[in-house]
Simulated scan of single mutants.
Amino acid sequence: MIDAPELIIIDTVNTVFEHIKCAKHALTIQCQQQQSFTPEFLAIIESKYPHKKQLFDLGIADYISSPFIDKELRYRMTHILSASLKKNSEQQFIAPSHDLPNHVTPSSLTDKRFLLIEKCVSYLSETLSEEIKLDALCRKLGTNRNKLNQVFREYLGMTVFEWLRVQRMKKAAELLETSSLNIVQIAEQVGYMDSNNFSTAFKRIYQSCPSQFRQNYRNSTNNHLKIE
Score class of each variant (00 low, 15 high):
Leu225Asn: 12
Asn219Ser: 04
Pro39Arg: 02
Lys140Ala: 08
Ser199Thr: 07
Ser195Gln: 15
Leu128Gly: 08
Ser82Asn: 02
Ala136Gly: 01
Gln215Phe: 00
Thr178Glu: 15
Lys71Gln: 12
Gln215His: 04
Val151Trp: 10
Leu164Met: 10
Ala201Arg: 09
Glu6Asp: 15
Leu176Ala: 07
Gly59Trp: 03
Leu58Arg: 03
Gln92Ser: 11
Leu115Ile: 08
Leu148Trp: 00
Gln33Pro: 01
Asp111Arg: 01
Thr38Arg: 06
Val160Asp: 04
Glu40Met: 00
Leu55Gly: 09
Gln215Arg: 05
Leu175Pro: 06
Asp70His: 08
Arg153Lys: 15
Lys53Thr: 11
Asp11Tyr: 06
Pro101Asn: 03
Tyr75Phe: 14
Val16Arg: 13
Thr105His: 03
Ile45Trp: 09
Tyr155Val: 00
Ser220Val: 04
Ile44Asp: 13
Glu6Lys: 14
Val13Glu: 14
Gln91Ala: 07
Val13Pro: 09
Glu46Leu: 14
Ile29Ser: 12
Arg153Glu: 15
Gln91Pro: 00
Asn223Ala: 13
Leu27Thr: 01
Glu118Tyr: 00
Val160Gly: 00
Lys24Gly: 00
Val184His: 14
Lys171Trp: 03
Gln150Ser: 13
Arg168Leu: 06
Phe56Ser: 08
Thr15Lys: 12
Leu156His: 08
Asp99Leu: 15
Ile205Cys: 13
Ile64Ser: 13
Ser122Pro: 01
Phe68Cys: 02
Ser47Ala: 15
Lys133Glu: 13
